[in-house]
Amino acid sequence: MIHSVLLLVAEAAAEEAKGGLFDIDATLPFMAVQFLILVALLNALFYKPLGKVLDDRDNLIRTSQAEAKERLMKAEALAKQYEQELAETRRQAQAVIASAQAEAQKIASSKVAEAQREAQVQREQAQQELDQQKADAMQSLEQQVDALSQQILQKILSGVSLG
């Protein structure tokens, strides 16, 4: 029944004047079918393989990016740790230097004090010796003065007695 109707329609179409812009015929279903075949073909040849490549690449990029980020974080943590250690070490070094300087200062000042004391002692000694010698010199001078004055006195006295 349907088949005969289709045949009638086809015959009617064939009897009509062929051609024209809006000549709709069996090209339409044929085109639809071959378009669907093209969809299937391209799906197998193009969309699936290349889509897989795109997804794989996305995954690769995402994972390597995550890895890189993780590594960067680790590196930053390490850098921070090193910096902290460095700061600690620097502080220790500073402390060592400060204590060494203090010690050196102490030693230097004690040495200076000792030297000053020694110098003081030596000076006092020298002063004492000097005083001693001065006293000695004075004493001998006095004796000489005494002798000389005795002599002068005798000379004068003798002159007077003669005169």
Partner: peptide, 15 residues
């Protein structure tokens, strides 16, 4: 315009 190069497939016409 509007001229077709017809192929005949059974009772059907194809451009």
């Amino acid at each position: 315009v509007g001229k077709q190069f017809y192929w005949h497939l059974g009772n059907f016409n194809i451009h």
